[in-house]
Computed example of a mutant assay.
Amino acid sequence: MSDARYPQAYVRGILTDDARFHTDGDDGTTAALTVNAGTMDSPLIIRVHAAGAHAAYLREQGALQGRRIIIHGIIHEEENADEAYIVADEMALHTSVKDALP
């Protein structure tokens, strides 16, 4: 999907809230994430959607507020919406040594 219609994005940041999971009528699950890819003084808030196995991964691994996350995906813009979001195709939750210290 390197076509210009599907611009790619790579985000590294911290979850600002716990992931929210939504189940549709076909038993498919979607996760909605909000990531701060900036700093506390100048936040850059990015919305992310993940579906299927990606949503299951987030639920199993505990995508909770404050966890660090790395995401790759494509930027999706709805024609009638005010903001775009990233549709994730690769991601990793991680804990740094700094997070593990008391």
Rank of each mutant, 00 (worst) to 15 (best):
D3N: 11
D3H: 10
D3C: 05
A4K: 10
Q8K: 14
Q8T: 14
Q8V: 09
Y10H: 15
Y10F: 13
Y10R: 14
Y10G: 11
Y10T: 14
V11S: 06
V11F: 06
G13V: 02
G13S: 03
L15A: 02
L15Y: 01
D17C: 07
D18H: 08
A19E: 00
A19P: 02
R20S: 02
F21V: 02
H22M: 01
H22R: 01
T23K: 05
D24V: 00
D24S: 04
D24H: 02
D24A: 02
G25E: 09
G25Q: 08
D26F: 11
D26T: 09
D27A: 10
D27P: 02
D27F: 04
G28N: 14
G28D: 13
G28W: 02
T30H: 01
T30M: 00
A31Q: 03
A31V: 00
T34M: 08
A37F: 04
A37I: 02
A37P: 03
G38Q: 08
T39Y: 02
D41Q: 09
P43E: 03
I46T: 10
I46N: 03
A50R: 05
A51N: 11
A51H: 08
A53R: 11
A53I: 07
A53Y: 07
H54A: 12
H54L: 15
H54Q: 14
H54I: 06
H54M: 12
A55G: 03
A56I: 05
A56P: 00
Y57V: 06
L58Q: 02
L58N: 03
E60G: 02
E60K: 12
E60F: 05
G62N: 03
G62R: 04
A63K: 03
L64A: 10
L64Q: 13
L64M: 10
R67T: 04
R67S: 07
R67M: 07
I69R: 04
I69M: 06
I70G: 11
I71L: 08
H72K: 12
H72W: 07
I75R: 09
I75Q: 09
I75W: 07
H76E: 12
H76W: 11
H76L: 09
H76V: 13
E77N: 14
E78D: 15
E78Q: 13
E79A: 11
E79R: 12
A81I: 04
A81R: 11
D82A: 13
E83M: 11
E83N: 14
A84C: 15
A88M: 01
A88P: 05
D89G: 03
E90K: 14
M91N: 06
M91K: 03
L93V: 04
H94W: 12
T95I: 15
T95F: 15
S96Y: 05
S96H: 06
S96L: 07
S96T: 13
S96E: 09
V97R: 12
V97M: 10
K98G: 06
K98W: 09
K98T: 14
D99I: 08
D99Q: 12
P102Q: 07
P102F: 02
